[in-house]
Design a protein around this nucleic acid. Structure first.
Lengths: 350, 350
DNA sequence: GTGAAAGCGCTAACAG
DNA sequence: CTGTTAGCGCTTTCAC
């Protein structure tokens, strides 16, 4: 029995460019040119090389290529949260234009580990991605700025003021104003906000809510209950509200997940939405459109945000632009069934 | 003004090991040892080197390291679908044990692009990840087998028979049997299946459904409507059913998304669930637990699946095991409010 | 067009 | 423990 030198642990041995060159009877440099689709190679030789590569089952080693060329043509994406479809829908846009621009996309998530996001960013950095898109990062701004010393960074769904960092989000002032005005227009005054806690952009949304309330002449009614961007947080906040006995007539939830959790809890308590209390979410994820939820919410142009993120990033990578980009996309109000006029005679007296 | 040679396009110049060695007054090899936490370096020198690295802002170049060591300590994950929380929850388990085993995780998604999954796998392969976890891949089995010639692969949520490929999923025979028996126990006979189309594992689920029906003496009632793993597909299937006028008394949906879409459509048609028709999903994603849905479904131990996937993969990478692993985790029936006894006197006559 | 030579930044023996 | 010597597999001048 002949020793099979082509297998290691039953797997293929890596075929190198050298091997292909030998097989095709040309120099290694020529093979390299062919692999990079260089125009300065005769059709004949190109065919020879390609055939040899095929025969040997050659796969270019991207790592070696990256090391030598100092380019990876790859962008990294930090996904704060794999569970929220909001982010997934942004990714649709990211993939769409990254594919067109011929950039690879590497996703790093950070499922709640300690120092998760930071570690993920480091990994991506060490892999020499050429730019980074941070989607809904909870990372301290200082860490983002530090990373931007290395490569271009665009932050999505969270404001960022560093000159070296680009940012993309919806127009929060407008979005929150649409919410408050819709509710106020229905006759609500006691509009409470369950916030996104330490989540990306939560502080902004909270501040804009307050501003919108004041603008509507409802400055005295500003009331914020702490939450997080999850359905569990929404349910918990609603439970606390219920327990306190001091219910508002309307709730503006930090996002659709929070709204969903809150509704769940109110249902459980036997309250009617919007009969007893109105609820508005934010994001317009598919969940909101389900008839059983029919959540009034704010639509964010998610795919557009993803598309824009890649374009913005690539501009920086290619050095086409040097001044910071601050894109603010237009949100829109989607009225469904969770909002209505306030109950006549408040449910619970103050 | 002094020319700052340390910036390129306003970004940090890469500091190399050589630079650190010079700064610390030691050899490059020593720096390398320090970076790899080798025990055979005196505390004193280690400190010197670390200080120098810190001072220079040195970041090891993972690419160069990988090339030289021929190890990346990274596993790749192909996520067929970023939108389905089912997969996100598997990832929780993946991260948990990968972190513990000190493996990096790189996610490649493939948002519906043509040849998306294939291209993503290639990218991951070229990056020399040491093993691949394919979660719910739609890739042809032949492509999976081809990839397994290069590196260890474990497939999650889809059966795979290749000797070189490991697979992890729930026990579908049991899961579907629980569904059918639950429904049959309530008195249903006309139990229809909206399937997952060409989705991962859909064929298995379909076949097991048929087997379970026969087992329950309901072989004559087997009926499958084509779908896909999305809520849209569920709604569409329900719409067709409604239009046909030939409704079953119970629907077993391919997954919770499909069930949700179907319910949405039935609601719209004014039918009552489970009054007029019972519905069961599969997966038990958070959606199913919402009170407004309260979907009866099958729970899959998602985090366990993710954990097991990494362990199984690492066994192969380390060469600890060579025979194929075929893990089948136990699913369980979660009864909620979408199932009940069939309507007395069928809604629509055959 | 094509090939030779010189690295990319790091790891891995192997002497000392 | 420390430094020297070779590469890892590819790209990239630069002559020919």
């Amino acid at each position: 029995m002949r020793l099979d030198t082509d297998t290691v642990k039953n797997r293929k041995r890596r075929v190198t460019m050298e091997d292909v060159a030998r097989e095709a009877g040309v120099s290694r440099a020529l093979v390299s040119l062919v692999m990079r689709d260089s125009p300065k190679v005769s059709e004949k030789r190109r065919a020879r090389v390609l055939a040899a590569a095929e025969r040997l089952g050659y796969r270019p080693n991207a790592i070696a290529r990256h090391l030598a060329s100092r380019r990876t043509h790859t962008i990294g994406v930090l996904l704060n949260e794999l569970h929220n479809p909001f982010y997934a829908e942004i990714m649709d846009g990211v993939y769409e234009v990254a594919d067109g621009l011929d950039f690879h996309v590497l996703i790093g998530a950070s499922s709640g580990r300690t120092g998760g996001e930071r570690a993920t960013v480091e990994t991506l950095l060490d892999l020499r991605v050429e730019g980074l898109i941070l989607i809904g990062p909870r990372l301290p701004a200082s860490a983002v700025v530090a990373a931007s010393a290395w490569i271009p960074i665009v932050v999505v769904a969270r404001p960022m003021r560093a000159p070296q960092v680009d940012s993309i989000m919806d127009d929060e002032r407008l979005g929150t104003r649409l919410v408050v005005e819709h509710l106020a227009g229905l006759g609500h005054r006691r509009i409470l906000h369950i916030d996104g806690g330490r989540g990306a952009g939560a502080a902004t949304r909270r501040a804009c809510y307050a501003a919108a309330m004041r603008n509507a002449g409802l400055g005295d009614e500003i009331r914020v209950v702490p939450g997080d961007y999850t359905d569990v947080a929404g349910a918990r906040a609603a439970a606390r509200l219920l327990a306190s006995g001091d219910l508002p007539t309307a709730i503006f939830a930090a996002n659709d997940f929070v709204a969903t959790g809150a509704i769940d809890q109110l249902d459980d308590a036997g309250l009617s939405v919007p009969g007893d209390i109105s609820i508005v979410g934010y994001d317009n994820i598919f969940l909101a459109a389900l008839r059983r939820l029919a959540l009034t919410t704010i639509n964010q142009p998610r795919a557009d945000m993803g598309r824009l993120a890649v374009r913005t990033l690539v501009e920086r990578i290619e050095g086409t632009r040097s001044k910071p980009a601050r894109h603010r996309l237009a949100p829109e109000l989607i009225v469904r069934d969770t909002t209505g006029p306030p109950r006549v005679g408040t449910l619970v007296r103050r």
